[in-house]
């Protein structure tokens, strides 16, 4: 078979020779490793891939990928990526961002890139802290968090990235965890496969400034009780013994134990394809410790992409009005001749 002769790139072939500058033990290492694996698994072309990032520890990511890349300015990566993808639809474009980058300074751009449904893969490394600037609280930090800039505890109400994504009409919304390597790979693969904007929140440990922020979700002993792995079309079941589930009680979800008169059929079934966003939104609001936090693909819809539409208009204009002709344009309408 011809394809067997194509050189298949190994994960390492997607890395650069640059020293990785993250702190030892940082969750970013795992995300980088999974990304290389995914690119290798999907046999993605290096020259047709661009990683665009903002500023932050996470945003150093492009330097470590042997693809094209741009380490841009704080919060604005979605805008660079929108221009790039619109001008060059042939490229696969990733946006790498942090919780501060995407939700503080870049909140506006995130909102608009999502609603426009630009065909990009946005990976948000959520460590619930400003890593690069050495540990101030971020828009996803829990209230009361004591940091250098909040010695008496933060008074800000935190934001849920996935709630933002759903309310901005994102067509692909998912969550995974840095150290859940298999799950992260699968999630990234699906994000790449989705046509339209893909928004993936990755729980990432900053072992220097916010160590253990997701301990509950990564500890072997607790994780099956604190994390709900979503599967399309399947009931929402979790727990070490798969004996707990999520049921809808009126408009609110509740945790129930299976058996004792409650069967799988009483549980909520996950429907990532539902165009109605209410249930997906509800999932984004389920948080530890009251609920297991959902991971996997919350939402996966087909919708027209911005980059298709902007180029379609060009195509359509050419078909209806003819190819560009400067001579004709300049001499159209009212002109006069001076002898």
């Amino acid at each position: 078979m011809a394809s067997a002769e194509l050189p298949v790139l190994k994960p390492a072939d997607y890395g650069t020779d640059q020293d990785v500058r993250w702190c030892p033990g940082c969750g970013d290492y795992s995300i980088l490793a999974q990304m290389k694996k995914v690119m290798s698994t999907l046999n993605m072309s290096r020259e047709n891939t661009v990683f665009v990032s903002g500023i932050g520890c996470s945003s150093r990511f492009p330097y470590y990928m042997n693809t094209y890349g741009m380490h841009s300015i704080h919060g604005r990566a979605p805008a660079f990526a929108t221009g790039l993808k619109s001008a060059r639809q042939d490229l696969t474009v990733f946006v790498i961002t942090g919780d501060g980058d995407s939700l503080s300074i870049g909140g506006n751009h995130l909102m608009h890139v999502l609603r426009r449904n630009v065909n990009l893969n946005i990976i948000l490394f959520n460590n619930r802290i400003y890593g690069l600037t050495k540990g101030q609280y971020s828009p996803t930090s829990e209230q009361g968090k004591v940091t250098k800039s909040t010695p008496m505890g933060s008074i800000d109400n935190p934001i849920h990235p996935l709630s933002v994504a759903i309310s901005c009409e994102a067509t692909f919304v998912a969550r995974s965890i840095d150290v859940h390597t298999k799950h992260l790979q699968e999630t990234l693969e699906r994000a790449v496969g989705h046509k339209g904007v893909s928004f993936v929140e990755v729980y990432q440990n900053c072992n220097v400034f916010n160590d253990g922020a997701y301990k509950w979700a990564t500890d072997k002993d607790s994780k099956s009780d604190t994390v709900l792995e979503l599967e399309h079309g399947k009931p929402m079941i979790f727990g070490k013994d798969r004996d707990k589930g999520i049921r809808l009680n009126g408009m609110t979800p509740e945790v129930v134990e299976l058996g004792k008169g409650i069967s799988e059929d009483d549980l909520l079934f996950h429907d990532a394809k539902s165009t109605e966003p209410t249930l997906a939104y509800m999932l984004t609001r389920m948080s530890h410790p009251e609920f297991p936090e959902p991971i996997g693909v919350l939402r996966d819809l087909d919708a027209p992409c911005y980059d298709d539409a902007i180029n379609y208009q060009v195509q359509h204009a050419k078909e209806t009005r003819g190819e560009a002709d400067l001579e004709k344009l300049f001499n159209s309408g009212d002109t006069w001749v001076v002898e």
């Binding site: 841009s72 805008a79 660079f80 990526a81 221009g83 506006n108 751009h109 608009h112 060009v314």
Partner: peptide, 29 residues
């Protein structure tokens, strides 16, 4: 004049406007 291969992007603000243009420049346009 989209038939002149003109892509116009009305951005969410002037920052996004220039950043999108820089993205297009990186893309070679």
């Amino acid at each position: 004049y989209k038939n002149f291969d003109v892509l116009t992007f009305q951005a969410e603000d002037e920052i996004a406007a220039i950043c999108s243009a820089i993205g297009a420049a990186y893309g070679g346009e």
